[in-house]
Design a protein around this nucleic acid. Structure first.
Length: 845
RNA sequence: GCGGACGUGGUGGAAUUGGUAGACACGCCAGACUUAGGAUCUGGUGCCGCAAGGUGUGGAGGUUCAAGUCCUCUCGUCCGCACCA
C-alpha cells in the first residue's frame, strides 16, 4: 500500500485536549484516518445496497443532476474528476434534502479514436471501446460517485442505435433530414467531412489538419428551420446559463435582417449568356448604401460562374484562376483578397447604371445567395478589394460629425447623399424606406439571414450509427422499416483508415427495398457522434421496466425533465448544447417530448491547469487521478478540487494544497473522538455555555447557512468548505462534548456531498447514519451578547469598540469617541454615522 | 474588428444589499515536541517603517460620511467568433 500518512505510533495523545465526558476515544489511539479502508468499505456498501437508484414513484419531488457523459478514451483525467465531483455534490445534497434524484452515467462511445486505435494497434473498435468503458467505470467508482447503475448505457449499444434510428426515420419522413450535394469541409487526414462547428481555425477539431472544400453528397438535419426559436429561447435561459454561452450561441446562429434583390444583366450580357441567366440575387444588411454600389462580386462556387466556365465564356487564364480559388484552403482564402473580372455587367436597379461583375475569393457561397453588392466607400472588405483592383469608390453616406470620409471605408451609420429620393435621410430611416420601396416596386424583399447552416451529419467512417436509409434504383432514397431496426454494424471489417469500411464490405450494404422489395443498397454513411449526445439525457429518464420497449416514456420524461443541473466544459458551448437544444425541439414537434429546452441550469466548469497550462499528455503536466486516489484517497481529491477554486473558474493544481486537504480530512476524522454516540442531535442550553463554546456553535451554524446558499444559488463550494474549516478551528478552542457532538452531527452531514466516505464513516460510527439529512438552523446561536463595531474617522478605520446589543446610538458614539481620542484632538465632529452591527463613522474637520 | 469573462498579498482565493479589505487554505518565518521530520502542535505573516504612523484591490478621475463593490475614461490578460455582405 502506498498510503503512508496514517501512522501515528509516535504521536503523543494530548490528554488536556481530549477531556470530555463521553471520552469514548483518545486521540490517535483509536481513530486513525485510513482512507483506502474507509472508501473501499463504503463503496462496497453503496454497491450492495444499490443506494443511488432513483425511485419510480413519480409523485416525489425530483432533481435531475447530470454531468456530461464521457468519451471512453481509456482513462479518466482531472477534468472528469472535477466534472463528476461537482455533479455528485449536487446529487448527494438533494438526496439529503429528501428529493428523488436522478444522477446517471453513460458513455459517448462511437467515434474516431476507436477507429484510429484499430488502425494503429489492430484492435477491433468494439473491443477497444468496451474494454475502455469497463476500466473507466472502475475508475469513476473509486471516486465514490453516486450514480444510478441501472440506467447506464453506451451510445454504441444496439438498443440505443435502434431508438436513434427510429428518430432519424421520423425526421426523414418529416423532411427535417435531407440529402444534398454541397461543398463540404473535408479533413484529408481523417478522410471524413466535418460540420462547420467542427472546424476550428480552418482545421479539423480532432486532428488539426487544415480542411479543404470538397463537393459531396451528404445528409443534413434542418436545424436552420429552428434558427429563430433557438435564438429566441435563449431569453428563457438568461441568468440560468452563463452569459458567455448564451452570447456564443447567439453569435453562432448569427441572425441578420436585410434586403434581398435581383441584379439584372444588361442586354449585352444576356446575349452572351445565351438567355440562360437574367441576373442574380444579392443580400445586404446595408440597403442605405445602395447608391454607392460600384461593382458586384460572386463566390467562385457560384452556379453562374460554373456555367460560364463550362461553356468557355471566359478566357482560359481567368477560368484557371477561379478554379485555383475554389481549391485553396479556408486559411489561404483569408490571407489576401483575389478577384477576376467576368467581363459582364448588371444594371443598378435604381440608377440604371452599368455595374461590372467580378468573382472574389472573399465571397462565401453558403451565406445569403453567394453574391454581394459591393460598396467600397462603406465596407472595409469591398474597400480593400476596390483599392487592389482600382475600382471606383463612391461615398453616399456622410458621418454625422466628421463628414465624408476619405482614404477609408466609413462603415458607421450617417446621413445619405447622392442617393436620389433617399438623400438627407439617416441610415436607419433610409434602410426601411429603401426596403419598402423595393418591396412596393417588386424589386426585392426584406429577408432574414442566418450564419447557422444545416447540420451535416454524414461521416464516412465505420464506428458510428448507420444512417437507416436505403437507396433503391426504382424508389430513390427510402427509410428502413422500423421493425428492422437497428441497422447494426458488421463485425467483420477491415479497418485500414482508407475509405469507408462499410462501403468496402462485401455484403453488408446489399438489401431489399422496403417499398418495392427489389434489390437495393444501404446507405454507408454513419452519423456524426453528436447525434447520439443530442438525446442521451432523454434516454436516462427511462426506467428499467420500459428499457427494451421504448426510448423513453412520456410520463417518466415529463417527470424528470428538464435536467435541473447540467455540468460540463465550456468547449461544448456551441456544438453539443446547440444540437441538444435543436434535437429536443425537433423531438417535441414529432410528439415525443414536451419540453422546449432540455437544460434548466448549466454550470460550465473551468479547466484544470498545472504550471499555468491546461493539463495535457503532450505537455507532460498531467496528474493521474488513479495515483492521487491511491495516495490520498478519493475524499482528498474531491475536497481539493472543490476547495481550490469556484467550479466555474480555472483550477490551478497544487500538490501541497492537496496535502493540506488531506491533513484537514485527517483532523476532521480524528477529532470526531471528541463527540459521543447518539441517535438524536444533543439539546444544548446555549445561555449556559462559555464564550468559546458559544463561538464554536455559532461557526457551525454559520457553515450550515452558507451551505444552503451554495447549493441553492452560488455554487461556490470553496466558501462553504472554508466555513466548515472555520467551525473546526473554533471547536478546537473548547472541550464541551455536547458542542462537539452537535457539531459533528451537523458538519458530517454538510460535508457528505463533498467527502462522502469519511462522512458516512463518522455518521455510521456516531449517529447510525441518522444525521445525513437536511439540518435545522438554531437561531439562538446567532443572538449576540456583545457587538464589535469598527470605529472610523473620515471613513478610515481607526479602532474597535464592543457594545451591548441593546446599546443606544448615543452610547455607541460615546464609546467610539473614547477609543480614537488622537484623531479627534483639535477637530470638530460634523457628523456621526452609525451603521448597525457594522461600524461608527465620525466625520471631523 | 465584434462578442464575452476577468484584473485583490509570495500563491489559490474570501468579502449577499457600498460599511473594519485580505476569510479559509497553500507557502514562508519563529518556537515546542523529537535520534530524526516531508509528521504533529503553538504563534506570526499585505506592503513601507525600529516605532508612531503611512499606504494598499491594474491605472486616472468622479459620486458618497464611506468605494474592491457604483459612474466615466484608460491599460492589461484570457476565451469565443471572425471576410457572414
Amino acid at each position: 500500500m502506498s498510503f503512508r500518512w496514517g501512522w501515528s505510533t509516535s504521536r503523543a495523545p494530548k490528554p488536556e485536549k481530549s477531556i470530555n465526558k463521553a471520552a469514548v476515544w483518545r486521540r490517535g489511539e483509536i481513530l486513525q484516518y485510513n482512507p483506502s479502508e474507509i472508501e473501499k468499505k463504503w463503496q462496497a456498501f453503496w454497491e450492495a445496497e444499490r443506494s443511488f437508484e432513483p425511485s419510480t414513484d413519480l409523485s416525489l419531488p425530483k432533481k435531475y443532476v447530470l454531468s456530461m457523459f464521457p468519451y471512453p478514451s481509456g482513462r479518466i483525467h482531472m477534468g472528469h474528476v472535477r466534472n463528476y465531483t461537482i455533479g455528485d455534490a449536487f446529487a448527494r445534497f438533494y438526496r439529503q434534502q429528501g428529493m428523488n434524484v436522478l444522477h446517471p452515467i453513460g458513455w459517448d462511445s462511437f467515434g474516431m479514436p476507436a477507429e484510429n486505435a484499430a488502425i494503429k494497434h489492430g484492435v477491433h473498435p468494439k473491443k477497444w471501446t468496451y474494454e475502455n468503458i469497463d476500466y473507466m467505470r472502475k475508475e469513476l467508482a473509486s471516486l465514490g460517485l453516486s450514480f444510478s447503475k441501472e440506467r447506464e448505457f453506451a451510445t454504441s449499444d444496439p438498443l440505443y442505435t435502434k431508438f436513434e434510428q427510429g428518430f432519424i426515420i421520423d425526421l426523414f419522413e418529416k423532411g427535417l433530414l435531407y440529402r444534398k450535394k454541397a461543398y463540404l469541409n473535408w479533413c484529408p487526414h481523417d478522410l471524413t467531412v466535418l460540420a462547420n462547428e467542427q472546424v476550428v481555425d480552418g482545421c479539423c477539431w480532432r486532428c488539426d489538419t487544415p480542411i479543404v472544400k470538397k463537393e459531396m453528397n451528404q445528409y443534413y438535419l434542418r436545424i436552420t428551420d429552428y434558427a429563430d426559436e433557438l435564438i429566441d429561447d435563449l431569453k428563457q435561459l438568461e441568468r440560468k446559463w452563463p452569459n458567455q454561452v448564451l452570447a456564443m450561441q447567439e453569435n453562432w446562429i448569427g441572425r441578420s435582417h436585410g434586403l434581398e434583390f435581383t441584379l439584372a444583366f444588361d442586354e449585352h450580357t444576356k446575349q452572351l449568356l445565351r438567355g440562360e441567366y437574367e441576373g442574380f440575387e444579392v443580400y445586404t444588411t446595408r440597403p442605405d448604401t445602395i447608391y454607392g454600389v460600384s461593382y458586384t462580386a460572386l463566390a467562385p462556387e457560384h452556379p453562374l460562374v460554373s456555367y460560364m466556365i463550362e461553356n468557355r465564356m471566359l478566357p482560359q487564364a481567368a477560368a484557371s484562376e477561379i478554379e485555383a480559388m475554389k481549391n485553396s484552403s479556408a486559411i489561404d482564402r483569408q490571407k489576401e483578397k483575389h478577384g477576376v473580372a467576368l467581363g459582364i455587367d448588371v444594371v443598378h436597379p435604381l440608377t440604371g447604371k452599368k455595374i461590372p461583375v467580378w468573382v472574389a475569393n472573399f465571397v462565401l457561397m453558403d451565406y445569403g445567395s453567394g453574391a454581394v453588392m459591393a460598396v467600397p466607400a462603406h465596407d472595409e472588405r469591398d474597400f480593400d478589394f476596390a483599392t487592389k483592383y482600382d475600382l471606383p469608390i463612391t461615398p453616399v453616406i456622410a458621418h454625422p460629425e466628421e463628414g465624408i470620409a476619405e482614404g477609408r471605408a466609413m462603415t458607421e451609420p450617417g446621413i445619405l447623399f447622392n442617393s436620389g429620393a433617399f438623400s438627407e435621410l439617416m441610415s436607419d430611416e433610409a434602410k426601411s424606406a429603401i426596403i419598402e420601396y423595393f418591396d412596393k416596386e417588386g424589386l426585392g424583399k426584406k429577408v432574414t439571414n442566418y450564419r447557422l447552416k444545416d447540420w451535416g451529419i454524414s461521416r464516412q467512417r465505420y464506428w458510428g450509427a448507420p444512417i437507416p436509409l436505403i437507396h433503391c434504383p426504382k424508389c430513390g432514397i427510402v427509410a428502413e422499416k422500423k421493425e428492422n431496426l437497428p441497422v447494426t454494424l458488421p463485425d467483420d471489417v477491415e479497418i485500414t483508415g482508407e475509405g469507408n469500411p462499410l462501403e468496402h464490405h462485401p455484403t453488408w450494404k446489399q438489401c431489399s427495398c422496403p417499398q418495392c422489395g427489389g434489390e437495393a443498397e444501404r446507405e454507408t454513411d454513419t452519423m456524426d457522434t453528436f447525434v447520439q449526445s443530442s438525446w442521451y439525457f432523454l434516454r436516462y429518464t427511462a426506467s428499467a421496466k420500459l428499457w427494451e420497449e421504448k426510448a423513453f416514456d412520456k410520463d417518466e420524461l415529463a417527470y424528470w425533465m428538464n435536467v435541473d443541473h447540467y455540468i460540463g466544459g465550456i468547449e461544448h458551448a456551441i456544438l453539443h448544447l446547440l444540437y441538444s437544444r435543436f434535437f429536443t425541439k425537433a423531438l417535441r414537434d414529432l410528439g415525443y417530448v414536451d419540453a422546449d429546452e432540455p437544460f434548466e441550469r448549466l454550470l460550465t466548469q473551468g479547466m484544470v491547469l498545472k504550471d499555468g497550462a491546461k493539463m495535457s499528455k503532450s505537455k507532460g503536466n498531467t496528474v493521474d487521478p488513479d495515483a492521487l486516489i491511491e495516495k490520498y484517497g478519493a475524499d482528498t481529491a474531491r475536497l481539493f478540487i472543490l476547495f481550490a477554486a469556484p467550479p466555474t473558474q480555472e483550477l490551478e493544481w497544487n500538490d501541497s494544497a492537496v496535502e493540506g486537504a488531506f491533513r484537514f480530512l485527517r483532523r476532521f476524522y480524528e477529532r470526531s473522538e471528541n463527540a459521543y454516540a447518539t441517535d438524536v442531535i444533543p439539546a444544548i442550553d446555549h445561555s449556559a455555555l462559555s464564550k468559546p463554546e458559544k463561538a464554536a456553535r455559532k461557526k457551525v451554524y454559520e457553515a450550515l447557512s452558507r451551505a444552503n446558499d451554495v447549493f441553492g444559488e452560488r455554487y461556490t463550494f470553496n466558501t462553504m468548505i472554508a466555513g466548515v474549516m472555520e467551525a473546526m478551528n473554533a471547536l478546537a478552542e473548547q472541550k464541551n462534548a455536547d458542542v462537539w457532538t452537535e457539531a459533528y452531527w451537523v458538519l458530517s452531514s454538510l460535508m457528505e456531498p463533498i467527502v462522502p466516505h469519511v462522512c458516512w464513516e463518522i455518521s455510521d460510527r456516531l449517529f447510525g447514519g441518522k444525521n445525513l439529512a437536511s439540518q435545522q438552523l438554531k437561531e439562538e446561536v446567532f443572538a449576540l451578547e456583545s457587538i464589535t463595531l469598527g470605529v472610523s474617522v473620515n471613513g478610515k478605520n481607526r479602532g474597535q469598540i464592543e457594545v451591548a446589543p441593546e446599546a443606544s446610538k448615543a452610547e455607541m458614539i460615546e464609546a467610539a469617541k473614547a477609543v480614537v481620542p488622537n484623531w479627534l484632538e483639535g477637530k470638530t465632529i460634523v457628523k456621526e454615522i452609525v451603521v448597525p452591527n457594522k461600524l461608527v463613522n465620525l466625520v471631523v474637520k
